[in-house]
Amino acid sequence: MPAPARYLGISAAQLTSLARGRDHPGIASLLRRAWLSRNLTFFAAVSPAPQVSATGTGQSPLDTLIRAQQADRAAVDSVLTHPRFGAWAAYCATAAPGHGQFADPIGFAASFAVAAALRAGIEFALPIPVVGGVGVVPGLGTVSGADGAYLHVRGHHGRLELDGGQTWNPVRTWHSGASTLEFDDLPPTPAAWPDQVVAPHWMPIADTDYDWWKGCFETARQLLDDTVPELAHPLAHGMRAVVPRSHENTGFVSSTLVDAFGAAAMITPVDGMGLATGLLHEFQHSKLGIVLELVPMIACDTEVSLPSPWRAGPRPPSAVLHGVYAHLAVGRFTRGLARANGSAELAERADTAHRQTVKACATLLDSATLTEIGRTFVTVLRRTVDDDARAVAAAGKE
């Protein structure tokens, strides 16, 4: 008799903790397992394709991943849960043939296999696609000195063996305690942000601009730790990458892709507070995106549009729910900063966030778009927003 199917689930207590903005200790592990399962499902849909195994080197990306997993499962899971892997796997499994700007999106399986092999310390030899004049190893860096559409790379004991004229350029990272956040200014792989296009020659962010980002991050980390530690801790352990975007090429301040859990695309922040707010906002979107795949909260999302306090036009119910979840966290952070700094401007921002979030909760609860679980979740969100405001008001009278 076959073993019964096993499904990931989320408890009522865990859902309540998410709605309260005080994540249950098991949430981080649950979201990571759900994200890994999702990515592997998409990968299974594309991995048997001939392009994945026919590399002409005697090795295949899939074989390399399997050998790496046998050597170090945690190292491979780190690659399989990387935001770029999730975006790539979903893109390959769902995009129409010939869609997009990449001639061979499946070929990027080799890039992820190289990343896994390097992390696991096994021997490998694979051709990886060249983007913007470099071979991209997601999450780790690039190899410059490429000539042609593919770059043949070899590795031994966790080290790349480069040919003459080739140079390894590691991805730059920010560290916060035991966690690491990538500054992902590498060339795009399939399913990049909509405005991110392949340039003939890739150049990383200049050192002076990078130093500004890094300084903002150090300030942002301290602000989040001091003001909303209950939100800062999950972010530090769940956010994997910041993707810097250009003011000229994008219409947003920050954004999240549902297929790239743990990554946020952002324009250059004005200061550390701006970066902290953007990271907090986008990580809330990332978390809720996975939760909504585990728990059906929206009964009808395709034929109904609702007014949103944050947009000029109507939005799908799921988008309004995302807005509530993100602004609950941002409002709490802003209100805490206002109290710590005695800032009337920040207090007004927090009050505006409170009014908008309450209004959006009422819109959702008055509609017929939520499931029973969704109504419970939004009801707790609504109560949490008011509780946050009352707590700060009470603290101010002491």
Results as ranks from 00 to 15, higher is better:
T256H: 01
C300Y: 07
S254D: 08
E293A: 06
M239L: 15
L279W: 00
V304C: 11
S286P: 04
C300P: 02
C300I: 05
P314R: 13
H285T: 01
V295F: 07
S305T: 14
L288G: 02
T268I: 07
V243I: 14
M297K: 06
A232R: 02
V243T: 10
N249L: 14
L257P: 04
G274F: 00
E293Q: 15
E282H: 10
V243D: 11
L280I: 00
A312T: 10
S308Y: 08
V295S: 11
R311I: 02
L306V: 05
P244A: 09
A260F: 08
A260K: 14
P244V: 05
V258C: 13
M266E: 00
A264Y: 01
G289D: 12
A236G: 06
T250I: 06
G238V: 03
E293I: 04
A276Y: 02
I298V: 15
P309I: 11
S254C: 13
S254V: 12
G289V: 08
G278L: 00
R240T: 12
T250F: 05
G278R: 00
L231W: 01
V242G: 00
D301M: 10
A264C: 14
P309N: 12
P269R: 03
D271W: 03
P314W: 12
S246F: 05
S255V: 13
L231E: 04
A236H: 09
A265H: 05
S286E: 05
E293V: 04
E293R: 14
P314S: 13
D259E: 15
H237C: 07
P296H: 11
D259L: 07
C300R: 13
A312K: 13
A312W: 11
I267D: 03
V253P: 00
C300M: 09
N249F: 08
L306N: 07
P307S: 15
L306Y: 09
A241P: 05
I298L: 12
V243N: 10
G278A: 07
H233F: 12
S246V: 05
V243Y: 08
L294E: 04
V270E: 08
G251Y: 07
H285R: 05
L306H: 06
M266K: 01
K287R: 15
Q284N: 06
D259F: 07
A264T: 14
M239K: 05
A299D: 10
N249A: 15
P309M: 15
L294I: 05
S254A: 15
A312E: 12
L292F: 04
A263P: 04
S308G: 09
H285V: 01
F283N: 04
V253A: 10
R240K: 13
L275S: 02
V304T: 12
L294S: 03
L306C: 08
V270D: 08
T250K: 05
A265S: 15
T256M: 02
S305A: 15
M266R: 01
H281D: 03
G274H: 03
F283D: 03
G278E: 00
A299N: 07
S305G: 10
E282A: 08
R311F: 06
I290L: 14
A265D: 04
S254P: 04
P309E: 11
T256Q: 03
N249C: 10
S254G: 13
R245H: 11
N249S: 14
Q284H: 06
A276Q: 03
A276R: 01
I290A: 07
L294A: 06
C300N: 13
G251V: 09
V291F: 03
P296W: 11
C300G: 08
T250E: 08
